[in-house]
Design a protein around this nucleic acid. Structure first.
Lengths: 245, 245
DNA sequence: CGTTGTTTTGACACTAGTCAATGGGTGTGG
DNA sequence: CCACACCCATTGACTAGTGTCAAAACAACG
């Protein structure tokens, strides 16, 4: 159609500071972007990959958002995480060579596909790339630890507040508003992710609304007072220096 | 003292199939073990490293066991994980270069210290080593995901049963008994790790005892019927091969 | 043998899950 | 373009499972 078909370029991608190219030299990024395959956008609910499938590629979110989940022994979906632009999906497959969770699109979304064989090869040639991949893996572990503590030690209210703050932070880092955004996932998915029932998510969002911390209308969230949200999450660090952050 | 001071050798270490050397050629293992530093054993409660400390080395458990934890904003310890022989500690530090949790010894224990600078260097020369490190990182992510689901979706009883099964499996893989072992951690640590109160751990262990699934006397655990324990964890896969229930 | 830390047990309170009913949105097909 | 169906979200009523508090038993240690 267009005379210049959209070409993937990490150099011009505004996500590159968050994504795999972070810290690479220009020449190294050029080598990386050669191996990236273009995939057609995925529609809502469309599967990117499913658990136990052979992992031939990793995927970076280019636009939209994704959800990873597994089906438990009772046949219920268990949401493991959400992915926003710039984030790498499929890292859990590097262990066995097969995906250990499924991923689907929460909205119309696109990805950069990184064929694993070529990526591995490139990592051998570009130590910086290997290093960045290792850092991303390590970061995921740290993030998981935080999530584990949230799941185990926090009340429903703190879980919901933390979830909103996490989205706020991630959207902010992407250059979007950190106080107004749409939830691309259902209450059910959030509930699953936070280890509570979807009714509890509804109720806690209502509570936060009544306390004038946020406004919620369907999937639209507005954070009225970020510092209030933070004080819910960290009751002990409250108030003193929460003017801006 | 001894004419031949104890020399670290991955080649003769019975853990090497579980540890970093897994999958390496003999020559590669020899290169790896040269960089390993010997540390004196740690006593119970002794700190291996603490959160925010600069990470100069990774550590593999040689004997004994360790606990990783952080202190939350209320000043409470939050246990993140337990480490048994052959397992690698400090992987969460590869992201920022600083440890994101603290680790202490649960009993008299020893470690193999892997200086990070030399390890990184070696990874460049030995692709297999890099690959194995990546696999271990990825495995940790998968394990964390399972833990997240356990924390979020399971009852106290399932949590405790899963915890015992997990220990059983890990001890079994080490060549120890998978039905009789000592808990090196306090109830409090288990509780923290599973996101319940320590009283709940006590109660659930008592329940499992009364149901003749296990016997517990202080830190000593005996699993009477592994299949019973499994049927608690996976209620839907139950029955077919569980004769008594 | 007292001190201290750990574990167990009981009583009670409360958070959050379950069940059920209702309302709002979106999409499809007549 | 409306009616219907379906999915999603909200709200209420009730309750089971756990947390909290308190006390006592037990073990480890000096």
């Amino acid at each position: 159609m267009t005379p210049n078909p959209p070409k993937t370029s990490c150099l011009t991608c505004r996500l590159s500071d968050l994504c795999l190219p972070f810290g690479l030299q220009i020449g190294e990024i050029e080598a990386l972007e050669i191996i990236i395959k273009i995939k057609r956008p995925l529609q809502i609910n469309e599967l990117l990959y499913s658990k136990d499938e052979l992992c031939k590629s990793l995927y970076a979110v280019k636009s939209g958002s994704f959800r990873s989940y597994i089906i438990n022994s009772e046949g219920m979906e268990q949401t493991i995480g959400f992915y926003l632009p710039g984030e790498l999906m499929g890292l859990d497959a590097l262990f066995q060579g097969r995906f250990s969770s499924s991923v689907d699109a929460l909205e119309t979304s696109s990805v950069c596909e990184l064929p694993l064989a070529r990526l591995t090869e490139l990592c051998l040639q570009i130590p910086n790339l290997q290093h960045q991949l290792t850092r991303i893996l390590s970061k995921e572990i740290t993030t998981n630890h935080e999530q584990m503590i949230l799941l185990g030690q926090s009340s429903a209210k703190v879980k919901v507040a933390t979830f909103l703050l996490m989205l706020s932070k991630r959207y902010g880092a992407l250059g979007y508003s950190n106080t107004a955004f749409n939830l691309s996932m259902r209450r059910h998915d959030i509930a699953n992710y936070l280890g509570v029932s979807h009714e509890t998510i509804s109720r806690q969002l209502t509570v936060l609304g009544k306390e004038n911390v946020i406004t919620v209308k369907q999937r639209t969230v507005n954070i009225i007072e970020l510092s209030l949200l933070k004080s819910i999450v960290e009751p002990c660090l409250t108030d003193s220096h929460n003017h801006n952050d």
